[in-house]
């Protein structure tokens, strides 16, 4: 049995779903962050798989961009979470409703 691109896509889809569910259901900001990473990486997986299937380089190239952006985003995001935790002694996003209109 050969592993076709479809399998990669299926795996990526399930990883994305798990990440999305985590993002929507969990309250802890840190866990939500992890879920976002999961979603990002599932997308990375579709990029490389599609790139290999079609024999083009753009897939891997896009993955590199996504990883750089994700790293930058994590740096800022974690700093925000640490700052919020120090001020409010909580990391639950449901309690951070200061921007309600």
């Amino acid at each position: 049995m050969t592993v076709t691109a479809g399998w990669y896509m299926a795996l990526a889809a399930s990883l994305f779903t798990i990440g999305a569910a985590g993002l929507l259901l969990r309250r802890n900001a840190l866990v939500m962050f992890m879920s976002i990473e999961l979603m990002l990486n599932s997308v990375n997986l579709t990029f490389v798989a599609a790139g290999r299937e079609l024999g083009v380089l753009e897939g891997q190239l896009s993955v590199l961009f996504v990883m750089v952006v994700a790293a930058a985003e994590v740096t800022v995001g974690l700093a925000i979470i640490v700052a919020v935790f120090r001020n409010r002694a909580t990391a639950s996003v449901d309690e951070l409703t200061g921007l309600r209109g």
């Binding site: 929507l24 939500m32 996003v93 449901d94 951070l96 309600r100 209109g101």
Partner: peptide, 18 residues
């Protein structure tokens, strides 16, 4: 009239995006 949309809950914004 548009204000209720901005309820301050990050997860509801997530639902919107998704």
């Amino acid at each position: 009239w548009l204000r209720p949309i901005q309820n301050g809950l990050a997860r509801s914004y997530g639902v919107g995006i998704l």
